[in-house]
């Protein structure tokens, strides 16, 4: 959860080695729209290079506005951000050719084929090499499994195919950073699984992946790091394992005599003791569960079951955001 900001300075040309430096850093990033509505509020984000960073939050919590600011589409009201060491939006021309992006769903020319659409996007990138374009486009289409539909008009594509085409356009050149805004929206379970595989594969090749989602399970399966948004504010960020262990483990004892068991737990110095119907629970702290059990048995309390429960990631997040994540807010 610690936030260390070390920006790779002049080494803009080469990707920073994995595990050092940050692909994205924001400082006090704030966006207030004209109506006075604050979409993003003093965001301090640090996305380590080489990580798969899950940007988690309910719909409307400011994820897409943040992504738009990272891509230089929206100008921050105050604060700033750096992408691959370049300040945005000033250093846009240097940073964005190294960034592949999927923003708020796919958008292409309906009257062009998938292949022609990619050619169009490739032409817009001033650093891409036109001589290798046909080759790179074919490879990108193949990678997302759209080769067979390459010549078909975008209009005739299904939602899943459109999503794949957007991913293909993000993979036209080797990227150092991939920003994916809700990449599994509209995908069936099979497509979702394929998307996860693709993200993993891209991350293994050394690319940092920044993926936004409102689905906790998805982030849990794909990501190494996570940042949690709530109404425009970042309420937590860090390695996913660290967040998961952030919650205190509790010990739960099934017993026919909860009152006696509660007394024993209290005598052991455990806090947060709660008596239920045929069970007792308490914060375990640093106490070893086997010692608790031995103590209970020694004091003549019958133990029918004993379990140490770590809070699920969902419990942690619900605690942080005050709501569940599959809730359409």
């Amino acid at each position: 959860m610690s936030l260390t900001i070390e920006v790779p300075g002049a080494s803009a040309g080469a990707p920073p080695p994995r595990g050092t430096g940050h692909a994205i850093v924001t400082r006090g990033l704030t966006k207030r729209f004209r109506g006075g509505q604050v979409a993003v509020d003093s965001l301090d984000l640090a996305v380590p290079a080489g990580s798969v960073f899950g940007f988690l939050g309910p719909n409307g919590s400011g994820k897409t506005t943040t992504i738009r600011m990272l891509l230089g589409l929206v100008r921050p009201t105050s604060g700033g951000c750096e992408v691959l060491g370049e300040p945005m939006p000033e250093g846009l021309a240097g940073a964005l050719p190294r960034v592949g992006a999927l923003v708020e769903g796919p958008a292409f020319y309906p009257y062009l084929s998938g292949e022609a659409n990619l050619r169009r996007i490739d032409a817009a990138d001033p650093t891409s090499d036109r001589r290798t374009a046909a080759h790179r486009i074919a490879a990108a289409l193949d990678r997302v499994g759209l080769t067979a539909a390459a010549g078909k008009r975008y209009r005739a594509y299904s939602l899943g195919m459109r999503q794949r085409l957007a991913i293909a356009s993000a993979l036209l050149v080797p990227r150092e950073l991939l920003i994916l805004d809700e990449p599994t929206n509209g995908l069936d379970p099979q497509g979702t699984r394929e998307m996860r595989g693709l993200v993993r594969e891209i991350a293994e090749a050394g690319t940092t992946v920044f993926v936004s989602s409102h689905l906790l399970a998805e982030v849990e399966q794909m990501c190494t790091h996570v940042g949690v948004m709530r109404t425009g504010r970042l309420v937590a960020q860090g390695p996913i394992a660290e967040l998961r262990s952030g919650g205190e483990p509790r010990i739960r004892i099934e017993t026919p005599d909860p009152a006696a068991a509660a007394r024993v737990l209290g005598a052991l110095g455990l806090t947060g003791v709660r008596e239920g119907d045929g069970e007792v629970s308490a914060d375990l702290g640093a106490e070893a569960p086997e010692r608790v059990n031995a103590e209970l048995v020694a004091r003549g309390v019958a133990v029918r079951g004993l379990a140490v429960q770590r809070p699920s990631l969902e419990d942690v997040f619900v605690g942080l955001t005050g709501e569940g994540f599959d809730v359409e807010a």
Partner: peptide, 18 residues
């Protein structure tokens, strides 16, 4: 209107250039 503008600018086409 089509949404392609954001992808052109993220390419990055460059606003003045585009």
């Amino acid at each position: 209107g089509m949404g392609t503008l954001r992808y052109l600018l993220a390419a990055p086409a460059g606003r003045t250039r585009l």
